[in-house]
Design a protein around this nucleic acid. Sequence first.
DNA 1: TATTTTAATCCAGTATAACGGAAAAAATTA
DNA 2: TAATTTTTTCCGTTATACTGGATTAAAATA
Lengths: 188, 188
Amino acid sequence: MTSRAEITMRLAGRLKKERAAKGLSLDALAKLSGVSRSMLSQIERGESSPTVSSLWNLTRALNVDFSSLLDQDMAPVSRIIDHMSDSQTPIFHNKEAGCIVRILSPVEEAGGTEVYDITFDKAAHLESAPHKKGCVEHLTVLTGNLEVSSGTERAQISQGDTLRYAADVNHSIKSKDEARVLLIVKNA
Amino acid sequence: MTSRAEITMRLAGRLKKERAAKGLSLDALAKLSGVSRSMLSQIERGESSPTVSSLWNLTRALNVDFSSLLDQDMAPVSRIIDHMSDSQTPIFHNKEAGCIVRILSPVEEAGGTEVYDITFDKAAHLESAPHKKGCVEHLTVLTGNLEVSSGTERAQISQGDTLRYAADVNHSIKSKDEARVLLIVKNA
DNA sequence: TATTTTAATCCAGTATAACGGAAAAAATTA
DNA sequence: TAATTTTTTCCGTTATACTGGATTAAAATA
């Protein structure tokens, strides 16, 4: 299978499936989208590769995004994907900041959704430079009290609280007394 | 701005930005992707809407997915997005299963990445039907010991352990004694 | 500052996306 | 089972994507 055929056939299958799921004929979808019946038929048989603007009309008529019609599927291979025991969990001692970081997410999630269990000493201060655009941190306090800053904004948080803040700017976490948090970094 | 112009201009900006980020000239990208200099120039000026197969060649040359060139951006509005205190955190008492579920993620993340803090009684049993295709659960044990099943696979896990398993099949969590977990459901 | 090199745009020709009507195939109804 | 209706594919024409060489514009060098 050639490279062009790969994407053309992937789109063919995806479009056919989406149309069937909505119970539409080629004619009905043509009227809804402004793309001709003939062209829809050609796309679904993998005989033609539509322009981005035709496909845009289709995404809107079907209420799906480009990704679901074009991008590669990611599916789990086995059911129990990974079992990392306590002793196998990577630990990082950040002496400068005064905290211990246990990394709960796998290496392949680096840059995606990262999960950390962080224990803070008294008077600890963990500072971070901006991560990539769109990065958000989700922090839940297990024990203790903390101050979190994101850009120029600040929040005092205590046990049981959950905070979500932008991490694509300078951000920090400060403790007075000992504390523990679970930190999820999305779009890291 | 017309509908066609909207997607054509979005792609123009995205492609120009991605090419600049990689420090490539039109000529260099043309050689890398097999799409002509002229066509690249037309796309970047919003003067032409490429076919899916041309764009496929570009995604591979630039090592990006279709979504990042075409789909709408989601960006955080404010830095401290949300501060949900302990008392504001929604709690669900599942008496039948024998557990208490605190919902740490916001309502708008329903269907995306959901986060739960779950406390199990003695002999609790939380069963779940399959979620949507590609759904994965990431569970960290804060206290206690548990048995998790996904499909026909099972795992015994204890304090400090982290388990990742498919949730697009039948899955369950069982405790003998009291336990507490943090549960992240991705592609819920 | 003039000259050379590199990058981007223009141009005319070719290939194919895209259309609407007609024909064929499939599904439904009497 | 025949007739009717709906759905899909075929067909010929038009519009535009796409090309490579030439030209123009911008950047780098002497």
